[in-house]
Design a protein around this nucleic acid. Structure first.
Lengths: 125, 125
DNA sequence: GTTTGCGCTTTCTAAAAGTTAGTGCAATCC
DNA sequence: GGATTGCACTAACTTTTAGAAAGCGCAAAC
């Protein structure tokens, strides 16, 4: 257990590494869900908000801005009146989203196992 | 874009679905890092804390309890004096951690791209 | 015999998330 | 044709959560 992967240890585990910041955006409360939602296609702001149940307007706006800054999400304003704003994934965003969707599917597929574990834990405590 | 994956839409995107809770634990601020750290082997509490740079004792304890409840992490107390407490991954935990590590590696590998995007964004705003 | 490490828990404060309201404009309903 | 709804946000305020610091009892090392 001392044979630790130093490449990993040197980066995301380090408090001040940039990758930790991105990971925080991606795996933040809403980041992953936004990415996963956009994995199905482009969406306008309020459509996205309807997909990601429970997110507030403030948090969705904040989340999308962070992901746009990280180069994972593309924001396109159409110069109509009133303006339409469309969000979609960049190439990198699509790759990250794909991984995240795999994670989600794993968790969803094993939700029964998880529920049993939770019930057992709650009984024991 | 209306051809949405309903299996997905029905679960993790729904506010009250159990899978959302697990996802919150897994992708929470410290959940993923703890899982990734344990992916390299079993660790005792303080060893884990040293690996996951920046986590407070309180948050690590809380995170590990949540993951244990979800059946992703195993907690073993050795009846010595003073007691040793070892944390390791369950089978499911190992599978989730593997996915998470892939995500981390993707992000780390593309950190250059991300940094450029951030710089461009900051220039434009 | 004083410091160090162990695995936490408790208390207090700082930061983040959530809630509510407001913006200006256009299309739709009645 | 007046009112409502939807659009894409921003700003002010409140609540929840995270983080920092101290304390716990005990044992081994210095």
């Amino acid at each position: 257990m001392t044979g630790v992967d130093d490449e990993l240890a040197a980066s995301v585990f380090a408090r001040d590494c940039a990758s930790r910041g991105v990971l925080t955006d991606v795996t933040g409360r809403w980041g992953g869900l936004a990415l996963a939602a956009l994995h199905d296609g482009a969406f306008r702001f309020n459509a996205l908000r309807r997909r990601v149940d429970g997110v507030s307007e403030k948090m969705l706006a904040q989340t999308l801005q962070a992901l746009e800054r990280d180069g994972l999400v593309r924001r396109e304003v159409q110069a109509t009146i009133p303006p339409r704003v469309e969000y979609s994934l960049t190439d990198l965003g699509a790759r990250v989203a794909a991984k995240f969707v795999e994670l989600i599917e794993l968790v969803e597929g094993e939700i029964g196992t998880v529920r049993e574990a939770q019930a057992a834990y709650d009984r024991a405590h």
